[in-house]
Simulated scan of single mutants.
Amino acid sequence: MAPSIPDIAQTPQGHEGGAPAPLHVAIIMDGNGRWATQRGWPRLAGHRKGAEQIKKVVQAAPDLGIRYMTIYAFSTENWKRSTQEVLGLMKMFRLMIKREAAELSRQGVELRFIGDRTPLDPLLRETMDAIETRTKGNSKLTLAVAINYGGRDELKRAAQSIARDVAEGKITADEVDEAMISSRLDSAGMPDPDLVIRSSGETRTSNFLPWQAAYSEYEFTPTLWPDFTPDELSDILDRFAGRERRFGGVAS
């Protein structure tokens, strides 16, 4: 089956006929620890400050035309960090989710989580399940939070799911296509990101949404995440609007 290529002619255009306005923005929120270290503070202080910036960016997103946002909160590789930092992050995730549940629901935000939940603390998993249920159906913004997420791990789990169905005779190998693979990913039901932003000056993609971001535009900013503001997001979207996205085609 031929790959599914976005129909550019049918997609709303950005400024001056440039790239379409980004429906889905994904963010690698890097630099929290460095921000705190530069100030002589514990790394967790940077993560707490970074969490405050998440709230500001999420609140601003709908007015900027964003309807889906995915943020990289904790990768499968982040378990290599110190026990103190990992435990502190997990506690912060649980408390923040509980604290923000009512406000996110009031704002019309649907919260969902992507990544492998099995290694997470049962209390955290319970909290995640509860807010997903509470906010399901909200339509102003869908916010996907990647916790214990790794793109290769996600693809492995999708492949295992498909392989089991083939082995059980539910589907044949010839029926496996791109749409089926996408439907087995954690992000199933969400459009692929139009734009991926990484803060802190690093220019790696760090195993973040490798399948979904195959045709995404990228923006790398030197700003450490705790200093990232809605105004900077708006500036990045303005630059995005001037890009020409051809998806492997040629300019008309």
Rank of each mutant, 00 (worst) to 15 (best):
L89D: 00
R106G: 06
Q59F: 02
Q212T: 01
V196Y: 03
I8R: 15
F74L: 15
N138Y: 01
A102W: 06
L141Q: 11
I236M: 11
L89C: 01
T135P: 02
G137F: 07
S105H: 15
H47Q: 01
A163K: 03
S216N: 10
Q160C: 04
H15C: 13
L111P: 00
W79E: 13
K136M: 14
Y68L: 01
A21Y: 04
R106I: 02
N138Q: 14
R94I: 04
S200V: 00
F208Q: 01
S82K: 02
Y68W: 13
R239W: 02
P62H: 12
G249L: 04
I147T: 01
P22Y: 10
A241C: 03
G17F: 03
R81N: 05
G151D: 08
D192S: 08
R81P: 03
R184C: 13
M69I: 09
L224H: 10
P222H: 13
G88N: 09
P12G: 13
Y68K: 02
S252A: 14
V145W: 02
T172Q: 12
I97V: 15
E219G: 00
S161L: 10
A102E: 13
S105M: 02
T133I: 14
H47M: 05
R184V: 04
M69A: 08
I171C: 06
E178I: 03
G249N: 00
V176G: 00
T133V: 14
G31H: 07
G108M: 09
R243N: 06
P42I: 08
R152G: 09
P230A: 08
R245E: 11
K98Y: 00
T83I: 07
S199D: 10
N138C: 14
A241E: 07
S183P: 00
R34W: 11
M180A: 06
S139F: 08
I181T: 13
P230D: 04
D177E: 05
L185C: 10
D129M: 11
T37N: 10
G17Q: 04
V57C: 12
L23H: 08
G137N: 07
A179T: 15
S187D: 03
P12I: 09
M1K: 14
E132K: 04
A251D: 05
F74N: 07
R204Q: 03
L195A: 06
A21H: 10
V57Q: 00
P230K: 09
A214Q: 09
T223H: 11
A45K: 11
L64Y: 12
G201S: 12
S199M: 07
R117S: 05
Y215V: 01
R198Y: 01
M90Y: 06
T83M: 09
M190C: 11
A21I: 12
D186P: 02
Q59V: 11
D186K: 07
A19T: 11
D227H: 08
A73F: 06
I71P: 02
A214N: 00
F228Q: 12
S183F: 05
G150K: 07
T203S: 14
I27D: 02
I114T: 05
G18E: 08
R48C: 04
A159K: 09
T203M: 15
